[in-house]
Design a binder for these strands. Structure first.
Lengths: 191, 191
DNA sequence: CTCGTGATGGCAGTTACTGACATGAGGATA
DNA sequence: TATCCTCATGTCAGTAACTGCCATCACGAG
């Protein structure tokens, strides 16, 4: 039952590793799924058993973000104003990126260069946003407030993320996101 | 120079029309590009000369939205607070949907049923958001305020759009969006 | 020892999409 | 009128993403 892998272990991880290496080395478009599978010591058919499509191999980490976002939100006192709850949860999610800016930059370079991958990134964001909106709804926040608050929270996160990648200083993402919420309030209040 | 079409006129329009008919009749996945071209009296190769890919045929209208959004924004007095400028422009864009709810619903049904199409819709939204942010920047709004304001404006639009489609009453989208901006301000101020 | 399970390989097929070249209608020009 | 030129379209071959189906084979359970 806990017997782990019967073949070479961690096939999925090997595929992801091989994909990253090839994408960075020779580009995303120039890399075929057969190439990736070969480097991982597997076949193309097996790749598609682990990842729904070629793009998905770059988005394995998105589940962790969602889990942290929802986990933290669940533990927050119900009395907390919506925007503050969103802020705490999004900041917790942001802290998962601590110390990973170099990796994030490399990955972002690949994604930014291909419309295909940007589309996938956007749907991951939308999924995250929807999950947040639904969680807020469970907290008792009515629609469309829940959706708007979720959208605002994710906007602060992603806008901050973009600036974090470019930031010449070494500030952590959490810090940038924290300030982002202050700016959000300022903008919305008409300053 | 103004000689118009030398072959059967409006090839692009015929392709779009054929695509809509087939998508609604037999589904998006079940329709091949060859099917669409055949119904339009053209070949598959010609389809790809008019549309970059199969999905794009469903997104011909997005350019009009962007044009209206930017056109209205350009004409606004510079003194107007950012959020109010965004509000006016987004409401103008929303009014383009006046009386088109039935069509919008049909199209939305197709798009909602296929992850591929949702991805494309999201990147159109992102493009629109980026264009708005850039236009705000030209108005003198600094970053990241411009990006945040653009994101908020588009969030209000799309959240409102979703509710408009479901709304049992016959309110126009502009009206819903207008109220959305009020709610946005309320949420952001911590109510 | 046998049998079942589950991850993998092998393979054929479909379809989206691309590059290269051919065709032919109509307008411009001599 | 005759000739050329442009450009939307047709034709065709090719690539690569993805899928369905069946075979294989290591390992654990009995």
């Amino acid at each position: 039952m806990e017997g782990m892998s019967r073949w070479s272990p961690n096939a999925r991880g090997r595929l992801e590793q091989a994909a990253y290496e090839l994408f960075l080395d020779q580009g995303y478009e120039q890399t075929t799924v057969a190439d990736i599978a070969k480097r991982a010591g597997l076949t193309e058919r097996t790749f598609f058993r682990h990842y729904a499509d070629k793009r998905e191999v770059l988005f394995g980490g998105s589940a962790a973000l969602r889990d942290e976002l929802l986990r933290v939100l669940e533990g927050l006192p119900p009395a907390l104003p919506t925007i503050e709850a969103v802020r705490v949860a999004v900041e917790a999610m942001s802290s998962l990126m601590n110390g990973r800016r170099a990796v994030a930059r490399e990955r972002h370079r690949v994604v930014a260069a291909h419309a295909d991958l940007q589309e996938r990134e956007l749907i991951k964001r939308a999924t995250l946003t929807a999950a947040l909106a639904q969680a807020l709804h469970r907290r008792g926040v009515p629609e469309p407030t829940a959706s708007l608050a979720a959208d605002m929270g994710m906007a602060v996160f992603y806008v901050g993320f973009g600036h974090w990648l470019d930031d010449p200083a070494d500030r952590e993402l959490v810090e940038i996101v924290h300030e982002g919420f202050d700016q959000l309030k300022a903008v919305a209040s008409g300053t």
